[in-house]
Design a protein around this nucleic acid. Structure first.
Length: 330
DNA sequence: AAGTGAGTCAACCGCCAACCC
DNA sequence: TGGGTTGGCGGTTGACTCACT
């Protein structure tokens, strides 16, 4: 026996909402509220709709102050920034864009923004030499700014473009508390991810102040930087999908050493393809090797440059939640 | 004009966590 | 404390539109 359906599917209308249905739902909620029970609501107002459907219709279309229509450049930037930061957490992203719904943003991302950024990715597939590239980098000199882009030239000798550790689709696996601290003890490192993702829960942001928290560290990114970073994110996701479709499974990808590899160890052993598992599937004890793997995968030339870097890794502090959502799906 | 493929987006599905009794 | 119910979420689907051939 499966789970009980939320409504009597046989007597429930599906498909597009009629203006009459909209009017019924809207006027009832405006006068009476939802009554705290969406499941019971359609019966109360004589709608042959599933309660969930009513909720969705209200939230995505009928409620006041919903913004429809094209997204602004500023909204684009916020979406991209937050996507890089927290992944496909559309409800959280939507909370930072007044009037936009998670569904809208999700659709917009999937149909337009992603392609737009993929278009930019092609521009980056034949990039100029790394030291001249204006892309997200890691330096060993700036302790507090997650990214250095426009001001990166002075550190270019040690710079490596740094794709995300995991695709954002899996970023919900992070322990946010740990993420919050993951770089803070490495004063000699520059960081990729924002240092301040403060929420321990994903479903709510107490206030809009969090927008700044979530975006902190990305504020200095140029559009070019962001495009490149997003391209890496998307590229990583798509490659993982392809590998999964092919039945590939590379586990941690720890071809050498172990999760206990210390930050001062160096390895030049060839790596397996980027790990299909998200960070949550293991603890990145040493981190150096993992970073090398990812860099090797994305930017071979830059990986060479990376070998010259001090071994201490920004991944050193990433602790994972093995039970987190998304584990074991591969 | 008809066929076709791509793009868009509203709506649905199923999972999961929170809540309630 | 445990089981059932509900709300919320992200992923996916499918109807519709439009451009192109």
């Amino acid at each position: 026996m499966g789970r009980a359906p939320c409504c009597d599917k046989a007597n429930v209308k599906k498909g597009p909402w009629s203006p009459e249905e909209d009017a019924k739902l809207k006027s009832y909620i405006e006068q009476n509220g939802t009554g705290g029970n969406w499941i019971a609501l359609p019966q109360k107002i004589g709608l042959k709709r599933c309660g969930k459907s009513c909720r969705l219709r209200w939230l995505n279309y009928l409620r006041p102050n919903i913004k429809h229509g094209s997204f602004t450049e500023e909204e684009d930037n916020i979406i991209c920034t937050l996507y890089v930061s927290i992944g496909s957490r559309w409800s959280i992203i939507a909370a930072q864009l007044p009037g936009r719904t998670d569904n809208d943003i999700k659709n917009y991302w999937n149909t337009r923004l992603k392609k737009k950024l993929l278009g930019n990715q092609r521009k980056h597939q034949h990039p100029p030499p790394p030291q001249k590239r204006s892309s997200p980098i890691i330096t060993t000199t700036q302790p507090t700014t997650p990214y250095s882009s426009s001001n990166s030239s002075s550190a270019s000798d040690n710079c490596v473009p740094m794709p995300p550790l995991v695709p954002p689709a899996s970023i919900h696996d992070y322990d946010y508390n740990t993420l919050h601290h993951q770089y803070s003890s490495h004063d000699t490192q520059q960081h990729l991810y924002p240092a301040t993702i403060n929420n321990t829960t994903s479903t709510s942001l107490p206030s809009n102040n969090n927008m700044y928290d979530l975006q902190q560290g990305f504020e200095n990114l140029t559009d070019d930087d962001l495009s490149h970073l997003m391209a890496c994110v998307i590229d990583n996701q798509e490659q993982q999908m392809q590998m999964q479709q092919q039945g590939g499974y590379y586990g941690m990808g720890m071809a050498s050493g172990s999760s206990n590899t210390t930050s001062t160890e160096s390895t030049t052993t060839a790596w397996a393809p980027p790990p299909l598992l998200s960070v949550s599937d293991y603890e990145l004890g040493g981190g150096h090797a993992c970073r090398q793997s990812i860099i090797s995968h994305y930017q071979h030339d830059d990986a060479v440059a990376f070998h010259q870097e001090p071994a201490a890794s920004r991944f050193d502090k990433v602790i994972v939640k093995p039970e987190a959502k998304g584990c074991g799906k591969i």
